[in-house]
Design a protein around this nucleic acid. Structure first.
Lengths: 126, 126
DNA sequence: CCGGATCCAAATGGATACTG
DNA sequence: CAGTATCCATTTGGATCCGG
């Protein structure tokens, strides 16, 4: 049985709680991608194409976790072939500006950070 | 030889780049802890006590990564017993407000999220 | 088309012992 | 005190097959 809900020991600690969500490599990227798509919901494979190097399994679990936290809405259409649409919730919309800030910070600092990284490596060969 | 530098394939993608750094469970918490300590640097075991459930190994690698990215300054004193002090860099200081926003968002939304999670769990027993 | 189930490889994290 | 080294348990992620 797949573990849909990440065990969260620190239910009482908001810091770790949000960090635990963000800590997934993909959560923020999925939210960001959905936001970038405007108000229109996205289908599963559409998300996959938008984030090419996420595996199907990981995308699925990421979406489930985000849904569980009320950050995305998953709408299943009883059609054939099946269709599932994902969209941001109101709650997620309040988080989007913070994600954008983070991304802007990253964009501003990336070049310097990459340079520092290269410098710092040194003869680690010890 | 421990891998000090996380391999970062997406050097050209600021989003993933910053996300990769943040994705560590502990990076933001360490930065936050250092900031909370005011302008005074913190020693290794001081940080450990502040974040009780981080292991020594993980704290070490987290600090190394942050140092490599120029987010913390590691100062070694040639004394005995040895002393090492960690402090935030200017670059990290520009990130702190974003971390604070994130934490505030978490604090504001945590209760609702936890409630949603509890709802959503359902008979997972399948 | 969406995504669950399974198997397996790789990365991560903890515990312990040891060093300068 | 502040690590490093090692071993091992747990977790995570990818690949593949299958089913609604």
């Amino acid at each position: 049985m797949p573990k849909v809900i990440k065990e969260t020991v620190f239910t009482d600690c908001p810091i770790r709680n949000v960090l635990a969500r963000i800590s997934g490599k993909w959560s923020l990227l999925v939210l960001y991608t959905l936001d970038r798509n405007g108000m229109s919901p996205m289908r599963f494979n559409q998300l996959r194409r938008a984030i090419p190097d996420i595996s199907q399994k990981v995308l699925t679990t990421t979406l489930r976790t985000l849904e569980t936290d009320g950050l995305i809405c998953r709408k299943v259409f009883a059609e054939v072939p099946p269709r599932v649409e994902y969209s941001l919730t109101e709650r997620a919309l309040t988080l989007i500006p913070l994600i954008d800030s983070l991304i802007n910070w990253a964009a501003d600092n990336m070049a310097d950070i990459v340079r520092d990284r290269a410098q710092g490596i040194e003869p680690v060969t010890t």
